[in-house]
């Protein structure tokens, strides 16, 4: 099922995200990412499968996406430009469609320097805008060199945008380029400031492309500080950190639910869906959605 069809039906599209593990998933052994996805199955429309996230080598996102599909969960196959040249990217898109994948999220990818193989050769043969353009070409039945395919792909193309980015107009310029290159829906980076999100959405809504608000649940003041210091492109406001630090540690989870539910409530009317990146507390997602 393509996410674009849901958006067209005016569904409020809810997705989550899992990361494959560092290891093989053969012999039907229940992989953790699969269990996590299954626990969310009844609450989300689809689940993103990250592609060697943070440049840490893991099980491939295509294999993991196929496992999700077999388990009856709609995968959003993430594909990054860091590790593959244009031949491999196009080939993987053909493979994905062949194996039943309907949705792909096209990303640049985190730099190798931040991962567990910093000595590898970075590829970045194309960027995310060019990847989208290539993927659209495959959907239209031709490769990037203009040669015909025996059968075209039929993939819904997603992209990401970071509303925290300054200058915002530069990020919007890139977003517009992504749309022109074929992006049909967007998932945002985590945002903790509704005002900031509103500023972004007022400028982006004119593009007429569905946007899902990206939610990362803050588990503790420590995690918030860590994100501020180490995760680029995300800012957790001090007021939120203080609010969390104001309760005893045993109540962090309740507080996390409360804060996230509040943000989701405030921001939901501005967007066409939500994208949860739960980072280890997937059980909070249903509770947040309920409240």
């Amino acid at each position: 099922m393509k996410l674009t069809e849901l958006f067209q039906k005016k569904e409020f599209v809810i997705t989550s995200e899992v990361g494959p593990m560092k290891g093989c998933a053969r012999n039907g052994r229940q992989a953790a990412f699969l269990k996590e996805a299954e626990s969310l199955k009844d609450f989300v429309h689809a689940v993103n499968v990250t592609d060697n996230q943070s440049a840490v080598m893991r099980l491939g996102s295509l294999a993991a996406s196929v496992l999700l599909k077999q388990a009856g969960i709609e995968p959003i196959y993430q594909l990054v430009c860091r590790d593959r040249n244009r031949i491999a990217l196009q080939s993987d898109l053909l493979s994905a469609c062949t194996l039943g994948i309907d949705n792909v999220l096209c990303l640049t990818g985190d730099h190798l320097k931040l991962g567990d193989h910093p000595t590898a050769k970075a590829v970045f043969d194309v960027d995310s805008v060019q990847l989208l353009d290539m993927a659209r070409g495959l959907n239209q039945g031709r490769d990037m060199m203009g040669r015909d395919l025996t059968q075209s792909t039929g993939l819904a193309l997603g992209a990401v945008v970071n509303p925290n980015f300054q200058p915002l107009d530069l990020q919007l310029l890139k977003m517009e380029k992504k749309i022109e290159a074929g992006a049909e829906f967007f998932q945002t980076q985590a945002v903790y400031d509704p005002k900031l999100f509103e500023t972004f959405i007022r400028k982006a809504e004119g593009f007429g492309v569905p946007i899902q608000y990206g939610v990362v649940i803050i588990k503790s003041p420590k995690m918030a500080k860590y994100m501020n210091e180490n995760v680029s492109g995300i800012t957790v406001p001090q007021a939120l950190i203080k609010e969390m630090a104001g309760v005893p540690e045993t109540q962090y989870k309740d507080k996390a639910r409360e804060i996230t539910a509040r943000l989701v409530k405030e921001i939901s009317p501005m967007v066409q869906g939500l994208h949860f990146m739960p980072l280890g507390w997937p059980d909070l997602v249903p509770a947040i959605l309920k409240s």
Binding site: C81, G109, H111, D127, V129
Partner: peptide, 16 residues
């Protein structure tokens, strides 16, 4: 650009 991007920035820059 560390990633050699040709169509604008990645989402990760902070404070320039």
């Amino acid at each position: 650009c560390a990633k050699g991007l040709l169509n604008g920035p990645c989402g990760g820059a902070e404070d320039g």
